[in-house]
Amino acid sequence: MSALLEVEDLRVRYATRRGSLMAVDGVSFSLHAGRTLGLVGESGCGKSSLGKAIMRIVDPHSGAIRLDGVDIGRLSGRHLRPHRRRFQMVFQDPAASLDPRQRIRRALEEPLAVHGRGDRSERRDRVREVMAQVGLHPEMADRLPHEFSGGQRQRIAIARALMLEPSLIVCDEPVSALDVSLQAQILNLLADLQASRGIAYLFISHDLSVVQHLADRIAVMYLGQIVEIADRAALWRSPAHPYTQALIAAVPRMAPERRGLDRTRLLPGDLPAPQDPPPGCRFAGRCPFATRLCREQAPRLAEIAPGHAVACHLHTAPDAAPGGAAAPSLPHFLQKDTVQ
């Protein structure tokens, strides 16, 4: 099966006051139609820049973004426009992603108008249809965004992304700005839409529990690079990269018996400055298992099992992991919790 979205060696560069920085540094992955790829990592890891580059909101520095075989990374302006209806985006902050002066009807008709779809009455019908799909009363179409709650605004933003019937939606932290009770509504809505319309999601989030809930395949990013990528079952069953393990260990869980666990599960330190990434493995400075090799030579993303790739010397260097890569007999961030 050929993939819907193929990203190959993508790089995104920003010029900042403190020098240029590679926000996305050689990222490759693919996403099949109707599936969800979860992209997790902490702020500054480049996950949002990656999403914006795929949406062509920022221009990639190098690499390819192929949607159904067409490299949309190289198209621009007029040539890109007809492809835009195939991939749409839902933003994090529903308060900022809708123009405060634009009535909902206008906001939803806009994509149709830009792409010259339908006449006036057809557009009206389509607005009613999509509003109903996302669970909004079509009578609300003549209101302004501030008259809606945060959850409703996110429904509107999803409706806008649906107007052109895309095959891919990039969701950039779509529930992070919402209260828990509203998160559930939006996550269920996204799952329903995928089931009924076969839309693929690139789901960007810092919230591991949400990604576990929704994603078929998960990529973990650290400082502009993917450090681990695996299918749902493999990643949660045997997370291989120490960073992935630390990330999972740090998530507060609704389990009071975890209280007062010792500090060893804490990942020390902060993200290094992205303008000046350390040589070797970028995680080495915070990794409790780092060796000299890790500090000197950057590990490459390599498969340790079918469909499960990790960029870590502990797994790939010949003498590092006794017992082979597949057996996670490595020092393990999660050891204390795995008994649970």
Partner: peptide, 16 residues
């Protein structure tokens, strides 16, 4: 309403 992070085998998907 909140999805729970589960270690080990991921749970089958359910509606929240």
């Amino acid at each position: 309403a909140k999805p729970r992070l589960t270690l080990g085998e991921p749970p089958p998907r359910q509606r929240l």
